[in-house]
């Protein structure tokens, strides 16, 4: 028996969310008296994998097959399944991402496991196995009882705070058997903003709305984000009008984020927007309309013209950071 944790890398480095998954898996393993084993796919720096030991992994399996660098859904699901079988894993833990959201269900069917996604806290195992998960697009939580011997769990950001301690883990090469059908979906091209902070992983986010009047005015949003080490985001109308790329759209039908600091500039705060951001720890709203509904969901607010307030805020932040 063991707990398997899927590790995702970005540009060869282990994603921060995967550290949370390891810490989460290690807690479950501790509760049931087993061990947490990590599985990573594609090209990942080996020292990063060994370091997973410090977050609770007793061993790290690595399938270095370069074909997996494409993040293929079918192929990755099959590798994770084979690792789970090899390690007799009863529980599989993964941190939510574009890829994990797509593979969790496929692995669950292969394993004959129950599957539950978007889990925000450690399970309650006092009577069965009950997890708390986000529902109604950030507007509520549900306690869900997960039956069966095998479980697949995907966790939301901040489901646990990983603490670095202990020793490095040994990294073992693992070779999964993959066939052409696993690679039936071909990646022909990828368009990715290199070097930017990935929005779902970002600890701080600065977001702009229609109040900015046009894409040419995003320079000040980027400047503010840069001063904070934050990622940039936008509201749905902004993405619909193609002022900003779709992968920056946060809200009900966009990305759901939970940074420690969310600064919204020129966004009125429609309920659909709040659904994507209301699990942020601290929300700052800058809007010239004192009646903007967003102020009701904010911790700090400034009623003022974004074109005056934002550059001043950037300067003030630069002065203290």
């Amino acid at each position: 028996m063991s707990v398997l944790v899927y590790i995702e890398a970005d540009g060869g480095a282990v994603k921060k969310s995967s550290l949370e998954a390891v810490a989460y898996g290690a807690e479950i393993a501790k509760g049931e008296g087993s061990t947490a084993i990590a599985i990573a796919t594609g090209t990942v720096v080996e020292a990063e994998l060994a370091k997973l030991g410090k977050f609770g992994a007793s061993k790290v399996l690595h399938v270095s097959d370069e074909r997996l660098n494409d993040g293929g859904i079918q192929a990755t699901a099959n590798v994770v399944f084979q690792a789970a079988e090899k390690e007799s894993a009863n529980t599989l833990v993964m941190a939510r991402s574009s890829l994990v959201d797509a593979i969790a269900s496929r692995v669950a069917i292969k394993l004959g496991a129950s599957v539950v996604t978007n889990v925000v806290d450690l399970p309650d195992t006092s009577n069965g196995f009950v997890v708390k998960r986000g529902v109604y697009t950030g507007k509520a939580f549900a306690n869900v009882s997960v039956p069966g011997a095998k479980k697949v769990i995907t966790i939301a950001k901040n489901a646990i705070s990983p603490v670095e301690s202990g020793d490095f883990a040994s990294v073992e090469a693992f070779s999964a058997s993959l066939s052409d059908t696993d690679f039936a979906v071909k990646r022909t091209k990828v368009e990715k903003a290199e070097g930017d902070i990935l929005l779902p992983e970002a600890d701080k986010v600065v977001s702009g709305g229609r109040g900015l009047k046009g894409p040419e005015n995003w320079g000040m949003i980027e400047e503010l984000a840069k001063s904070l080490g934050a990622a940039t985001a936008c509201s749905k109308p902004v993405s619909d009008m193609e002022w900003r790329p779709h992968h920056e759209h946060v809200g009900q039908t966009g990305i759901k984020i939970s940074p420690t600091l969310y600064i919204a500039v020129g966004i009125s705060g429609a309920i659909q927007h709040l659904a994507g951001v209301n699990s942020s720890k601290v929300i700052v709203v800058i809007n010239k309309d004192a009646e903007a509904p967003f102020f009701k969901a904010a911790d700090y607010g400034i009623v003022g013209d974004a074109f005056e307030v934002v550059p001043k805020l950037t300067e003030a932040i630069k002065a203290v950071l």
Binding site: K139, A140, A142, V144, N278, I283, F295, A298, I302
Partner: peptide, 25 residues
């Protein structure tokens, strides 16, 4: 063997928003 929804809860409400003077960033 389906999962079972046992109970629901709402997120904790935010406390009052603190307003800051735009001239005092």
């Amino acid at each position: 063997g389906v999962t079972e929804y046992q109970s629901f809860s709402l997120p904790e409400g935010k406390s009052e928003c603190k307003m800051i003077d735009p001239d005092n960033i």
